[in-house]
Design a protein around this nucleic acid. Sequence first.
DNA 1: TAGCAAATTGACAGCGCTGTCATTCCTGCC
DNA 2: GGCAGGAATGACAGCGCTGTCAATTTGCTA
Lengths: 337, 337
Amino acid sequence: MRVRLEDVARAASVSPKTVSRVLNDEANVTDATRERVRAAMEAMDYRPHPSARSLAGNRSFVVAMLYDNNDNPSSTYLAEIQDGVLEACDAHRYSMMVRPLRMRDGDFIRRLDALISDHHPDGVVLTPPITDYAPLLKRLREHKVPYASVSPQRRGKNLGVTMDEQRAARAIVEHLLDLGHRRIAHVVGIANHGASRWRLAGYHEAMAAAGLPEDPALVVQGAFTFGSGVEAARQLFSLRKRPTAVFAANDDMATGVMWAAGEYGLKVPHDLSVCGFDDTPLSRQLWPALTTVQQPSREMGKIAAEQLLSDLRSHGTGHLVQVPFSLQIRGSTAKAP
Amino acid sequence: MRVRLEDVARAASVSPKTVSRVLNDEANVTDATRERVRAAMEAMDYRPHPSARSLAGNRSFVVAMLYDNNDNPSSTYLAEIQDGVLEACDAHRYSMMVRPLRMRDGDFIRRLDALISDHHPDGVVLTPPITDYAPLLKRLREHKVPYASVSPQRRGKNLGVTMDEQRAARAIVEHLLDLGHRRIAHVVGIANHGASRWRLAGYHEAMAAAGLPEDPALVVQGAFTFGSGVEAARQLFSLRKRPTAVFAANDDMATGVMWAAGEYGLKVPHDLSVCGFDDTPLSRQLWPALTTVQQPSREMGKIAAEQLLSDLRSHGTGHLVQVPFSLQIRGSTAKAP
DNA sequence: TAGCAAATTGACAGCGCTGTCATTCCTGCC
DNA sequence: GGCAGGAATGACAGCGCTGTCAATTTGCTA
C-alpha cells in the first residue's frame, strides 16, 4: 500500500502538518525535526500524492511548455528545449505538460483558456516564436499565470533566458571577413521571428563595421527550412557576381545552401564558404562539417524553466539570464578564393 | 470563482453524485436527467478539477509517452508521434506527460518506478525502440500500468498501432525493379530496431522474388542519421561495380546518400536512383524530391493513444491497429541508366 | 391494483494533503 | 524567578470529487 504523509508523521513522531512543512521547505522547523522527518521520508520512500497536494494547496505542480508547431523553427530545436524544461521540472518534482498552439489559428486564446481551466498550470514556458505574441501574454497576465520565455524579443523585466544572437551573428560574419571574404550573403529566416531579426542585424553590423557597401541582392529571404535554403542559394548563385560566402540564419538553411552549391558545381569551402546558426546535430554530420554558432537550446530550456520555478517558489527571484554563445569553426569556411 | 460540481448539481436540481455520473458516462441515469445535467454543465462552462477527480477516483487522467532520446530514430519522428498522442489525450481530457528513458542507462528501471510512483499514469504509450524492451514491459505489468505501442516488434495481443513496414519496403524496392534497376543497394538502420529489420527483410524479399542474386557488398550498415547515410554511400560508390539505386532505411540516410552522390559527381536520378522511408518534411524539400514511403507518424501516435484510452475506459476494447502505407514516388528515382 | 425487482437517485464519508489558527515550547531580559 | 514574545508544533476542517450503500421511483407481472 501507498505510504502516506501520515505514515511518515507517525514514524518520525511528529504531526502530519510538520511533515508537510518539511516537504514544502517551510520555515519554523528545527533542524533536528527536519532531519528526523527527512530520514523517515527517505527510509519509507515516501512520495507525496501530487493530486492531494494540488487539491489541498491550490496549485498544480504543472508547468506547461507552449510552442507553435505550425510556424515553428524546427522540431529538433523544440525537442531540445523540451528536454531541458523537462529536466528542470523533474529536478523540482514538477510535471511538464506540452502544448502546441497555432498563433495563426483563430481559436488560439480559446485553447489557451482551455489549457488553463483544465489543467491550472502553475507557470508556463514560452518558446519562439510565441514569446512575444501580445494577446497571449495579456491573457496569461489576466489569468495570473507566471511565464518564462526562451529567447524573447522584448527584454523587459520578464523571466527567461536569452543569448546575444546579434553579437553571435556579427562574430560569425567577422570570421568570414577575417578569412578575406568581401561578398558575403545572408539568408534570412522567417520574418518577425526574433532570431531572424537579430541575425540579420548582426550581419549588417559586421558588414558596416568593416566598411563594406551593402548589396541588397546579397540578402535573400528564407524560411528556416532546408528547402528555403536551397532556393535562396539558387538565387544567389544566379547573380552575375556571386558571393564567396553565405551566412544562413540557421543550420537547416545552411545545409540547403551547401546542397545547392553542389548543383552549381561549387566546392565548399574552396569555392564557397558557408556558415549557419544553431549547431544542430546535422551540422556535424555534414561534409565538410558546418561552421556555426552553438546555441545551447537544451540548456536554455532548462534555465528558462528554472527561472520560472524559482519565481514560483519565491516571487521575485526569477531573472532573465543571458547564456554565452560560442562559434564552432569547422570545415565549411575557408579563405576567400 | 471556480464552478464546482456542486454548483452544477444545484443548477440542475440533482445531487452531486448524479452530476458525477453524467461526467463519467456512467450507466443508470435517465436520458432526461443526463440532458439536463449536460445543459447545466455547458451553461456554466463547468470544468472538473482534475486533481479532485484523481484523488477521489484513484486515477490520474495522465498518459505518459515514453521514448528513448539517446538511441532515437529522429526528433522529427518523435515530435510527430507526440503530437498525435497529445491530440488523442486532449480529445478525451487526459493529459500527456512525456518521459525520456535511456535504455542503455543503468537507472532505467529506477526512473520508470519514479515516474509511476510520482505521477501514477493511468497508461503509457511506448515508442520505438523501447516498445519491446523486456525489462520495461515486465515492470509495467508488475505495476499494472496498461500500455500501447507504436510499431512494436512483437505482435501479440497487445495494444497499439503498426504498419506493414516489410511489405512497404518490398513495394519500394519493387518500384526500383520496375524501373529496370538490378544492382540495388540497401542502407540498413540501427541494428535491433524493428524498423531496420523489417525494411531489410522487405528488401531481401523483393530481391529474392525478382530472382536476383544477393550481393552482400550492397547491404551496408547505417545508423538512421544523415551522416551515416553519407558514409554508407561512400562505401557503395567505392565498389568496382556501383549500384544504380539505393534504398535507404530512412529519409535522413537517403538524404545522406544523395549528398554523397554529389561528391562523386553522380546525378540523381540520372545516374543513381535513391529512395528512403518515412516521408519526413525534409524529403519534399530536397531536389529532386525523395521517393519514399509515407509513414503516418502523427496518425500512428494518435491511434496508439486512442487504443490505450479505449482500453482504459473499458478493458478489452483496445486493439492492435494496422495502418496502411503509401508510396510517394517522386523525382529521386528514375529508369536505370 | 397490489407486489416485487430493477432502475434511478441521493446521503455521506473520505481520498491525502495543506491552510488557519490554537497551543506549547523556548528564548532573553528585568 | 517570572514573564513577554517569538519560534515550533499540532488540531482540525476542508479542497472537489467519487465509492459505497441506502432510499426512492419506475416498470412489470399476476
